[in-house]
Design a binder for these strands. Structure first.
Lengths: 333, 333
DNA sequence: CTGAAAGCGCTTACAG
DNA sequence: CTGAAAGCGCTTACAG
């Protein structure tokens, strides 16, 4: 914090190496174009001066920042954390920095965070979920920044979407549970568009396969363990006891199981439970929790691929990248 | 993504408002110094052009970025998440952006992430924990950036430290459990310097109060639910069964309880358990988990205060800010 | 309260 | 393979 000596600049390095600043810049950005001997001198000068590039100047001059903004609702208890972490790892390894911005569980700060990102001239904005506001979509489309929508898979992405079909996930879970012989499903649905989508698709498919309409209750986002416990207690208000409870997240499923067991119920014998997200804990719980897995690391890899393609100036093959999902059948249902 | 029109610049706004660029800049940064009528014209011009400041140019010219780097080991399952989230919220509200960098559970990428942050000319670097490498400490001390070390409370902070005494936390827990009548504590210790510190202080104090040396086992970081389950099973290897298990995190405590209950043990009657971190889940678990609370939001507030003080050019009153901790006595011990 | 001018530290055609 | 020069979009003394 005691700014003694001024930080060395690219010019200092150039002077010491006896070359022009342009050559040092080239060495830094495309080392293959500078002669081996020149490179050696520059390398030595960098070490001797302790030079650290000023990326802020580089961004201004070069019109690319290698800064990427990741906008997520929250991280304290988020199902996206694995993906976010894989993403930050991959991007950092590829020489980028990540600016993480929180938009709030209800996404109220989405627009102000988009503006903050644009002000920093980020190369790309990664969104968790899909922007629903049409004006914002139009504005982002007109802007040079690359926008990647994740988790959802809208018909017409702003630029690119990487995710899976929440409709399909809901339907497949309905089919899975019906095939396992369950007859009275109850849905615990977080108040988010994606959870809502899965729940309604579940219900539609369930009835298509001859079942009667599932009962349901809603919970606030972000969903957490405590809501699972409350959800169990709320069963008392239902016209009949369900034989399987489809929870919108693994946290809810875990809380539900703990409360059910504390009340003396056996899971899954007396009541079965499913989660969503396939958190590590789902495989460790007693009983292990049947869940839906989305490959967060793959989402991260696809993002990198898109970003690389675009920064190489190439055209994108596909604007909607479906990474799919898998139902992981375990003990709880 | 379709860069049609070039983004409007401060010059565009100035021209439209009929003032010089310097005046627009002043309006943006210290609105109180420009005349009311001028301000009105500028405001209108900003709206009409849709101007968004280029903070990258502002940083280069003004030598401050309003960008703050937060370096954390990981976020997928971290006890720091609440603090990180509170911090990002507070900083964003104060007009800063936050660059979140992951250093790895074992902190291997600490130095490269520090360099990345310095390259972006961040105003401050927030560290989770304390930098142990002396060369890095010296380098950061010599650098104009403000460094805030959190959670730990080193004798001689690089700039400022905001945290609590892990030694005191370990001691107080020992005293607390001894006073409650427990006699055979067992420690489950994540392999991190801070957890280690708490565990050894616990043991020292426990023996000072007349107890015999606690048994212990270590677990990898980041700690998680599954380790708690394994820790229960590992009790079989101990010379005697403990009457209380002191876990290094609430995740471990929760997993331990679930496994103990699955094995037919009653918590806390047959075996008591404590956690650390006071996650929301700790208060929701069955039984509720006795834990140690650190006020993450307060850490975040103190950080803001420090940053504000420093950016106002004022001197800091204290370089070590102790936010304390509280043992939250609940059902599990 | 406002303007003209210099400068922040880079990158990138352009020319050789 | 390398250099001279212009320029990226701001901020900030300095002067009035």
């Amino acid at each position: 914090m005691n700014g003694v000596a001024k930080a060395p600049t690219l010019d200092d390095v150039a002077t010491l190496a006896g070359v022009s600043p342009a050559t040092v810049s080239r060495f830094l950005n495309s080392p293959e174009v500078v002669a081996a001997k020149t490179a050696d001198r520059i390398r030595a000068a960098i070490v001797e001066t302790g030079y650290l590039p000023n990326l802020t100047a580089g961004t201004l001059a070069g019109n690319r920042s290698r800064l990427i903004a990741a906008l997520v609702p929250e991280i304290a208890q988020s199902i996206f954390n694995d993906t976010v972490e894989a993403m930050i790892e991959e991007l950092s390894a590829a020489g980028n920095s990540v600016m993480l911005a929180l938009t709030g569980a209800d996404n109220t700060r989405l627009i102000s965070q988009i503006n903050a990102a644009l002000s920093r001239r980020v190369d790309a904005i990664i969104l968790t979920g899909v922007v629903t506001d049409e004006a914002t979509r139009a504005r982002l489309r007109a802007h040079p920044v690359t926008v990647i929508e994740t988790w959802g898979l809208p018909e017409d992405p702003i630029d690119v979407a990487i995710g899976f079909s929440h409709r399909a996930a809901g339907e497949e879970m309905a089919h899975f549970l019906r095939a396992r012989g369950y007859r009275r499903p109850h849905l615990v649905v977080p108040r988010s568009p994606r959870s809502e989508r899965r729940a309604s698709s579940f219900a539609t498919r369930w009835m298509q396969e001859g079942g009667s309409e599932p009962t349901r209750m809603e919970v606030n986002v972000p969903s957490h363990f405590g809501q699972g416990r409350l959800s169990y207690r709320a069963l008392a208000d239902l016209p009949h006891l369900p034989d399987v409870v489809v929870c919108g997240s693994d946290w809810i499923a875990q809380g539900f199981i703990v409360e059910a067991q504390a009340a003396g119920m056996r899971v899954p014998d007396q009541i079965a439970v499913t989660g969503f997200g396939n958190l590590r804990m789902a495989g460790d719980m007693r009983p292990t929790i049947t869940s839906v897995d989305v490959d967060g690391a793959r989402v991260a890899r696809e993002m990198i691929r898109v970003l690389r393609t675009l920064s190489a100036g190439a055209a994108l093959h596909e604007r909607r990248i479906d990474v799919g999902f898998r139902i992981i059948a375990r003990e709880s249902a």
